[in-house]
Nucleic acid binder design. Structure first.
Length: 285
DNA sequence: AGCTACTCCTGGTAGC
DNA sequence: TGCTACCAGGAGTAGC
């Protein structure tokens, strides 16, 4: 599923192909992808505008628009589970899962492809306001070891659901949470306020390391959904230590990786590396 | 405050 | 082989 590293890879790939381009037309094949705006309203806001900037915040893709050199709102994309955003020749067969296509001139289109229809490509007048509820960027200056230590201490939630909560920290999903927790040797069901300072600091460092390495590898591909803008699979899946490895040996200690459910989410742990005091584990229902 | 359950969707797969 | 039933999975919302 596209998480921060995959979204970052996509943004880096499409940015040079979108900057300065004018949106000539919009073809909407699945209206819900627009997230509420009617097609005529979406058309009115988007067609004729020029792309001024392309950036990422958490798992969101922001495409700033302008008209006559003045800011004119933003296309805010979220790929959810199966979304893809790609610049391609208009003549290319969009396939059955293309939900929105935006004409860019020069025979090119920006296509939002999404098998499961959970993704969104919304027009918003003010992107910063739309993203205001998100927590800090894990690779940005606002995410410090001290901030995380305090954030864990001040809540009484299971670590995994807390790290998945985008209003706490923006950009982590199921894969990179499991990987980060394993590398920090912390159990996903552990109560956040039971984590000692040293372990919180470890978690901070591992979250940043996992995300940085995954960006270097252009994200993770293990099904047909995620591809880089160049059409290649990412390669970080080869570095997974726990995700999708249930039944295999832990690369750190040799114990068998287990799959369990934490907060209704499939979760991968090494039962030896990720132990915690019984009192600190929030029991499954 | 923080949990579970439910919703949105479809392709893939387990089970028969 | 062909069928059905169920599941995964981000995020929002409702209810406890």
């Amino acid at each position: 599923m596209p998480e921060l590293p995959e979204v970052e890879t996509i943004v880096r790939g499409i940015r040079p192909r979108l900057l300065g381009r004018r949106i000539r037309d919009a073809e909407v094949r699945w209206a819900r992808t627009l997230g509420g705006l009617t097609r005529p309203e979406f058309d009115r806001r988007v067609v004729g505008a020029t792309v001024a900037a392309v950036w990422r915040r958490g798992k969101h893709i922001a495409i700033d628009l302008e008209r006559r050199g003045r800011p004119a709102g933003c296309l805010l994309g979220h790929l959810r589970m199966s979304g893809r955003l790609q610049v391609e020749p208009r003549a290319a067969d969009p396939g059955p899962y293309a939900r929105v296509r935006l004409g860019l001139g020069r025979g090119e289109v920006l296509t939002f492809v999404d098998v499961r229809k959970f993704g969104r490509l919304r027009f918003v007048a003010d992107a910063r306001a739309a993203l205001a509820r998100l927590g800090p960027e894990p690779l940005g200056p606002g995410f410090t070891a001290a901030w995380l230590r305090r954030g864990l201490r001040d809540r009484r939630r299971m670590l995994k659901p807390l790290l998945l909560d985008q209003t706490f920290l923006a950009g982590l999903g199921n894969i990179y949470v499991d990987e980060s927790l394993h590398r920090a040797r912390l159990h996903p069901s552990r109560r956040s306020d039971s984590v000692p300072a040293a372990a919180a600091e470890r978690l901070w460092a591992e979250i940043r390391a996992v995300l940085s390495e995954a960006i270097e590898r252009e994200g993770s591909s293990f099904d047909t959904f995620y591809r880089t803008p160049a059409g290649r699979p990412g390669s970080y899946q080869a570095s997974f230590r726990v995700y999708g490895r249930d039944g295999d040996a832990c690369r750190a200690c040799g114990a068998t990786i287990r799959k369990l459910v934490v907060g209704q989410r499939g979760t991968h742990v090494c039962p030896r590396c990720q132990r915690a005091p019984r009192s600190a584990i929030i029991p499954a229902p």
